[in-house]
């Protein structure tokens, strides 16, 4: 499977996946970030959680976020970052 997003691409994390086992934290849903690395493909934990085989495998990305974009009340220096591993089906172009 080829990765839909390249390193450096701007993405937004989906927030319309509202049921089931979700490996993307609630606090990051709806936020915009940048692809920092592509880790390869892995079985989808969200189907494996219900006994599925996790196929097709999903591309897993390391995504970086500016802390002041994630938290409205973030007061620390603007350059602080948050990095999260997120599967491709959670991402859309920003």
């Amino acid at each position: 499977m080829t990765a839909r997003f390249k390193v450096g691409a701007c993405i937004r994390v989906r927030r319309d996946i509202t049921s089931g086992h979700r490996r993307t934290p609630g606090y990051i849903q709806g936020k915009t970030g940048t692809i920092a690395a592509i880790w390869g493909t892995f079985p989808n934990p969200e189907s494996r959680a219900y006994g599925g085989d996790g196929l097709p495998e999903q591309v897993l990305y390391l995504v970086s976020f500016n802390q002041n974009h994630v938290w409205e009340q973030y007061k620390a220096p603007l350059k602080d970052k948050l990095f999260i591993d997120i599967f491709e089906h959670w991402l859309k172009p920003a």
């Binding site: 490996r23 948050l82 999260i84 599967f87």
Partner: peptide, 9 residues
């Protein structure tokens, strides 16, 4: 720069 890694996967 503080970088937090949330290892979710």
């Amino acid at each position: 720069q503080v970088r937090v890694y949330d290892s979710t996967a």
